[in-house]
Nucleic acid binder design. Structure first.
Lengths: 249, 249
DNA sequence: CGTCAATTTGTATCATATACAATATGAATT
DNA sequence: AATTCATATTGTATATGATACAAATTGACG
């Protein structure tokens, strides 16, 4: 005879929610001036009329697939990039995330099944907006939208983006080096400062910021300078990850 | 005619994982000296022999139940406490979290169904270890275990606790005020310093720490002092949440 | 009453943040 | 070619906070 001591929270199988599980990725990029999010165009139907809107890139989890792998799969299929900075930051499972009939209707067609409830694990990804990626995305339904100009999206995706940005701020205040994932390989201190100002939402003194940054051992000055600007050309720097890892045992 | 434009990540229903969803809570308390975790005794069976071990408090998600509500339900049933500091910090969905046959066997009996895969949303809870809670827990299968002396637990619960502690550190370094949830209503600056030292894993100068803390407007000095200690009795303070909220617009 | 072990106060030094003036420079303009 | 412009970069002075550590205080105990 077996003894199974459970807590008083044990539940019979037939009371359980039939739950679908997905991942959604908030892919953030920096165009030198603004933060942008990668969104997917969606075409659906409501009350007999076709409509167009947007959603986050995402996917249901495959059988036997790790959560992180699912997020990486979505990103690779979308951007062609590997080695993307990727952080899981929150699961969203509210009942009213499928409150909108548009979304329910779309889900039932896209998944070809009735979806009672869908819980999603949200990821934040940081990418360099580069030529290779732009080319990869051509002809796809993906586009970049500035975070200040995001229209109403499917499901609770506006809320997810809001929390992704909060996660970026808190994550970058713990370890600002993640921000280099958003910058091109070569960048000026002014570009770096712009990014700091946008992420943390505050103005910084250019002179003091400059001095603070160039004293960092892992910020390597290059011999190259900007060109074509109507003022003194700024020096390019690069982030040396090897030096960085050594500098923080 | 309807048009549904999907991404190339669309998936047929029959490829989908049959997933169960749960919450698990890492409940942390501070006994004045050490951090402790609340664990649940488990009795199961393996190879015809009964065994005893421990697990985190948790539960499958009820139908139509919010994730946060599920976590709160587990905590209320366990401790009798309401208004607990509670933060979701990560979803765990690795395939090999049910790698151990002990756990598979236990799950099938406890849930009375075959569980192919179980994804859990992990929460960190911070509580004051008080008389009321201790009384509430009497006769239950719950007990406090110091974080330095946690034995191998069910599933990936050791890993979950590790990440909960990491979350506590990063969360407290963003906003140390969450630490007051672990202290009694009245506490000395030395108790507060002990907690800081344990959470951040570093020694702090008592004199400097004292001066830094008493200048905070929301740390209110009481007229009461310690008694029964073999040295100068320390003054009690309390954390004033109202003042705290005002001091950070 | 002196001793003990910790709390609490005092002070001096050092590092870093901030403010802001001054200089440098590549391109556009005159 | 000289001047203007706008930003990059350097310099300097001050304020603020972190750290080190000595000194004074106090409740309990023998």
């Amino acid at each position: 005879m077996y003894i199974f001591v459970g807590t008083n929270t044990d539940i019979m199988e037939n009371e359980l929610a039939k739950i679908h599980l997905s991942v959604d990725c908030t892919v953030l990029g920096f165009d030198g001036n603004r933060l942008e999010v990668l969104l997917i165009r969606r075409t659906g139907e409501e009350g007999g009329r076709e409509f167009h809107d947007m959603k986050l890139p995402g996917s249901l989890i495959l059988d036997n697939e790790e959560l992180d792998d699912a997020a990486r799969r979505v990103l690779t299929e979308l951007t062609g990039l590997k080695n993307i900075t990727l952080q899981q930051f929150k699961a969203f499972g509210s009942m009213d995330r499928t409150k909108d009939p548009k979304d329910v209707h779309w889900l039932e067609h896209a998944q070809k099944a009735h979806v009672h409830r869908i819980v999603t694990v949200a990821y934040m990804a940081l990418v360099k907006i580069g030529r290779a990626m732009i080319r990869e995305m051509e002809g796809s339904e993906a586009l970049w939208v500035p975070v200040g100009a995001i229209p109403p999206l499917a499901f609770d995706h506006n809320e997810i983006i809001g929390e992704a940005l909060a996660h970026l701020r808190s994550s970058a205040s713990m370890d600002p080096s993640i921000l280099y994932a958003l910058l091109p390989r070569k960048f000026t201190v002014t570009q770096l400062r712009n990014l700091y100002e946008i992420v943390f939402g505050s103005k910084l003194d250019p002179a003091n910021f400059y001095k603070k940054m160039i004293q960092l051992p892992y910020l390597v000055a290059l011999d190259e300078h900007e060109k074509g600007v109507a003022h003194r050309a700024a020096r390019y720097f690069r982030f040396d990850k090897t030096i960085y890892n050594k500098s923080r045992l």
